[in-house]
Structure formats: structure tokens, C-alpha cells
Design a protein around this nucleic acid. Structure first.
Lengths: 225, 225
DNA sequence: ATTTGTATTTCACTTATTGAAACTTGCTTT
DNA sequence: AAAGCAAGTTTCAATAAGTGAAATACAAAT
């Protein structure tokens, strides 16, 4: 943590430290003061003061086992999720998918507008290198039935971690999708769609494995292996 | 913002300010520097410095329209939901509710600081056995007016310990909700939602009593009686 | 009772933070 | 084109906010 050496003078050291510490606390279950201080590179008394500040404002909570993420971070995280923040988060993963498969990648979320919506929405697209489609998909609906992304959004992902649909709603098209999960809950579907003539069974499963791996990185700290 | 008058000397003013400002930014879509500074009660130059700090560490991002929630808050929020915090704690209670009622169970938190927020956020769903819907609601908004969960989040729970709303915002739907409390503070609403044709008055009250009992176990050490 | 490790408090010191003022930028109006 | 206005950005003197080493408290193990 040699942040002092590289810190621009337009920043605020105290806040940086607090936010680092917040990351440490959110990274696992309970963490002790001593461990949190060590991981953040702070003295115990400094870490205690910062943790107490974040506890007062609800970002952190303390129980018998140590410090944990508090309700405030949950609220702000969920709030951020409801404001299109998933799109920039997924951008790198989608670019990698396009680079790896040559096909177009899509991000879908469930539609709002009541519990009978029955469809999803495209919120992001990365066109593949082979793509002959240049129409914009963002904002459009997707059926939950007969589509790979739809199955994912319906919670019907098999244990393999992805869904393959060949010649479903759209003839001559193979779609592969994997869920983006938060706390075990499905918040989005990441998918790759290609003409069936270009995708063998083996290729579909290779893409599926890629998708599952990329989807699992979108809301975590760790990059794809 | 008379925080100077009441601030304990165990806290850190700079961090408090930054976290307040983070809440302001996460509360909506894009916010300008001037508006963010005013809402947080800071000078423009102080707010700019704090926002830059949070931008550098990824908690906030800036685009042409202003400042928005950054990837880091989404990641930490997702991590917080995944670890031993409210969602996993509520999962067992929600599963029991689904098993007992056959209907879908939901967990909502206030969107931001308390009953004037105007809406809440879904952070967990357990689908009922009768459910024809399989869409995810994490991150979605819920109106506080005309909904059972909304009334609970607004602090309007009657002495019975639960709220029943039939044919409210949503026609032909009955919703029952109870508060999850920490130290007397409402941190979440636990609810069950079903089509009204399936839920008599008596059944709604039975579900309400179940909900109140389950909600009371979520953040306590004691199992349901 | 002693030892060890974690958590908490204390306080002298200094530097990190602050915000008013000046400046820059961009847009609108005259 | 010039003037006006608002938002954004930079500057810098002043001070109080933040720091961490040391002391203290606490709890568990021996």
C-alpha cells in the first residue's frame, strides 16, 4: 500500500483509507479490527476510528465475530444496480466474449412494469466481428419463453451454469446464456447469439463455459481466470 | 447538517462527509457537482475533492451528465448481499414462508434514508410453488404508497405486526408484509404476495402472523417460536 | 497468578483538510 | 462581438482534524 507515493494532491487521503477499509470489510464475512487494520495498512487506532465512523453511518456493522458489511452498503449497492450501472460493469466481460467467440454478446435484465411482465429487456449489446446486424437492440424486449436469456432470467439455468437454445424463438439461431447473480439472486442474463450454421454442439458448450466464467466476474472483485 | 454539534469525537468528519456525498450520488441517476455539494451541505471545492477521491477508487463515476454510482459500490453491494448479511439470513425464513403458504416471498429495503424515500428496493425473492413468474426482482423499485411492503418501510405497521393490502397498486393481488427491525429501526420489509382469488381475509391474517414471526427471527439469535 | 493477544483510550504533534476567493470554461442574452 | 451568468476548477493561508505510539483495559488461555 504505497499510496502515499502515488497519491495525487487532488485526492483525500482519509477518505481513500476509509474506502479501502470498507472494501476489506465487505470482502468476506466477519473481520476483526486487527485483521482489517493490517489488510488496510493502518494502525489499529486509526482503523478503529474509521470503522466506527462507517458503523455510525450504517456502512459497516459490528457483531461478536467482528465487522461486517452494513445495511447502507446493501441499500446503495441495490440502488446502484437499479440505475443502469450494470452496463459499464459488464462491458469488459462482453468485449472479451466477442473477442473470444467472434459473435455478438447481449445483456438482458427482467422487465419492470409489474409482475406479469413476462419479458426481459436488452440493456447492452456488443456486436460480433461476423455480425451483419446493425440495428440497435438496447431497450427492446425479449421473450422469456423459448430464449436462452429468458430461461436464465426465469431461474432455469442447469447445474452446468449456462443454457443453450438452438433454433428456438428465432430459427437458425443458437443462443447461449448464463446468469449474473447477486447474493444468489438473478439480476441479469449474459448471452452470446450466433447463426446455428456457425455453432456446433461442442462450440455452444465452449461458449457456455466462457459465459458462465465471465458472468461470475461481473459483480466480483476477481478477474476472469 | 448540524453534525459538528453532535458528532462524537470517535468519528471522522471527512469520512462522514464523503459517505453522505456517496449516498447523494447513488440516490438517483446523474447529479451535478453543484447539486451534490448543496445536498451534502459542502462547498463546491470540498465536494469536488471528495468526489474525485471516490471516482479514483471506483465508488463514483463521472460522465457528461454528472456523477453516478460507480462499479465499486455495485461490487461491494453485491458482495455484501452474498456474505453473512441480511439476504442469506433471510433466505431460510423466506423458504419457510414459501413452503408454508405456497406463495412468493420478497425482501425489500428502503431506497435511501428512511420513510421519505418514495420507493424501496427489492433485494431478494423466493418464488412460490404456484408462481407463474420466474423473473428476478433484485435491484427493482417498489412504490411505498399503496403497497404492503411500502407501508412497512414507511413505519406504518399496525400493532398486529403486519400490513395487509388487497387490490392496492396492483389489482387482483393481495400483499402482506412485516418489518425486519434492528434496535427498533426498520431495516427491511419481508412480504408475501399472492393473487387475491387465492387469499381469503383469514388466510391473509394467517400469513401476516407467519410473516411477523419469521421477520422477528431474521436479525435475532432466537429461532421462530 | 501470569501471559498473550485484541480492543480501546489518550494526547502531543503535524499535516491534511478546508473554503473563500480567484480563475476558467461554456452557454445564453443583448 | 461583448456582457452576463452559472458551473466547474484551482489556489493557498489557516487551523483543527487526523494520526499513531504508548498506555490502558479486557478476555481467554495456561
Amino acid at each position: 500500500m504505497a499510496e502515499n507515493a502515488v497519491r495525487a494532491d487532488t485526492s483525500t487521503r482519509t477518505v481513500e483509507r476509509a474506502l479501502d477499509l470498507l472494501g476489506v470489510v465487505c470482502d468476506g464475512g466477519a473481520v476483526s479490527l486487527t485483521d482489517a487494520a493490517r489488510e488496510a495498512g493502518l494502525s489499529a487506532s486509526t482503523a478503529l476510528r474509521l470503522l466506527r465512523t462507517m458503523e455510525t453511518s450504517g456502512f459497516v456493522r459490528k457483531d461478536d465475530d467482528g465487522y461486517r458489511a452494513g445495511m447502507r452498503i446493501v441499500q446503495l449497492g441495490a440502488l446502484a444496480l437499479s440505475h443502469e450501472s450494470l452496463v459499464p460493469l459488464a462491458a469488459e466481460a462482453m468485449k472479451r466474449l466477442v473477442a473470444e467467440t467472434g459473435e455478438s454478446a447481449y445483456l438482458n435484465v427482467p422487465a419492470s412494469g409489474g409482475p406479469n411482465a413476462g419479458h426481459g429487456i436488452y440493456i447492452a449489446v456488443q456486436e460480433g466481428t461476423h455480425s451483419v446486424r446493425h440495428t440497435s437492440w438496447v431497450g427492446r424486449s425479449i421473450e422469456l419463453r423459448g430464449t436462452a436469456a429468458g430461461q436464465v432470467l426465469r431461474g432455469e439455468t442447469p447445474a452446468a451454469g449456462y443454457v443453450v437454445v438452438s433454433n428456438g424463438v428465432e430459427p437458425d439461431v443458437t443462443a447461449v446464456a448464463a446468469p449474473v447473480l447477486v447474493g444468489g439472486q438473478i439480476v441479469a442474463a449474459l448471452s452470446v447469439v450466433a447463426p446455428s450454421y456457425r455453432v456446433s454442439d461442442d462450440e455452444a458448450h465452449r461458449i457456455g463455459a466462457l459465459l458462465a466464467a465471465e458472468a461470475s466476474t461481473i459483480l466480483s472483485d476477481r478477474p476472469a481466470a
